[in-house]
């Protein structure tokens, strides 16, 4: 079999052209990844560089010192952030996950459509507005600032993210799995919870972690809900310190050691979220995750 020479040359040319295109696109993707990573690396570098002097044992164990005295730490704020985010999660996880399941599994009707739309609207509401809402419904009736109010504000903020990511992830579970379960005579609600949710668990957890990370980084909704507290406090009925509000207050202060502590607080917040992500992922990992979505 002898092929015409011209055709062969043509093929060769096309082959090289495709290889070049492929290489070009590959490089483009790689460069995009780098660009996306640059801000992260810069932030990490700066928080470490500027906050390093303030990161020591005291930072994790001591209370803030009064103005003028140096040293001290943000132990109350670290714990406060954990409590506030914990409260928010207690409120938003059940609601968000169940709403997500509803939308993915049963939400194919006008009600589901409305919920979906409203959830997206809620997702777009500026976080300070969420703070005002929590102020109105919790702080005003109670007549004082409290951790509860902060928790509610963060919870409202987390619900739409969790709902929508849960829904989107559950929708990626192949329909054939639902059918397989239903055909076994497994009731629909059990299919949703124990087959669909279980199959998509790692994705749902990712969504939750995103929401938690976002809530942990919020300042605005806490300003007039949990307020702040310079003292050790674990009573949820009292104003509570948080890393973000401390960072906000310290960063705009004129004192160098406070500013350093603000940087250190940022670094600690980032590390906390990273550790949380790693722990949760490790704890909820599936043996067969390799075969997952």
């Amino acid at each position: 079999m002898k092929e015409p020479k011209r055709l062969k040359r043509m093929d060769n040319y096309r082959f090289h052209f495709r290889k070049l295109t492929s290489l070009f696109m590959f490089t483009l993707c790689g460069v995009s990844v780098l660009i996306a990573l640059v801000p992260l690396i810069l932030i990490f570098y700066r928080t470490v560089a500027f906050g390093f002097s303030a990161i020591n044992w005291d930072f994790f164990t001591q209370m803030p010192k009064p103005v003028g005295e140096s040293g001290g730490g943000l132990a109350n704020a670290i714990v406060g952030t954990m409590i506030l985010v914990g409260l928010g999660s207690c409120m938003s996880l059940p609601v968000g996950i169940m709403a997500g399941i509803y939308l993915a599994e049963y939400g194919n009707n006008w009600f589901g459509q409305s919920v979906r739309f409203l959830t997206d609207v809620l997702n777009g509401v500026p976080s300070i507005v969420t703070g005002v809402v929590a102020y109105t419904v919790v702080v005003l009736p109670m007549k004082h600032f409290s951790a509860y109010a902060g928790g509610v504000a963060l919870g409202i903020l987390m619900i739409p993210t969790i709902t929508r990511t849960t829904e989107e992830i559950l929708k990626t579970v192949p329909h054939s799995l639902r059918e397989a379960a239903l055909a076994l005579g497994i009731p629909r609600w059990k299919t949703s919870l124990q087959i669909v949710l279980r199959t998509a668990m790692s994705g749902v957890v990712t969504g939750i972690l995103l929401a938690v990370a976002r809530a942990a980084g919020e300042t605005a909704p806490l300003l007039f809900t949990a307020l702040n507290n310079r003292f050790w406090n674990t009573s949820m009925n009292q104003p509570m310190a948080s890393l973000t509000v401390f960072i906000y207050n310290y960063a705009v202060s004129p004192f160098d050691d406070w500013i350093a502590q603000a940087w250190a607080g940022t670094f600690v917040l980032m590390t906390l979220i990273l550790l949380l992500s790693l722990t949760v992922r490790f704890a909820t990992r599936n043996k067969f995750a390799g075969n997952l979505l």
Binding site: P174, A180, L184, M201, F288
Partner: peptide, 13 residues
């Protein structure tokens, strides 16, 4: 009971 065209074992189990 039903068996489908494409095998569909539960992937996480």
């Amino acid at each position: 009971g039903m068996v489908f065209q494409k095998p569909n074992p539960f992937p996480t189990m």
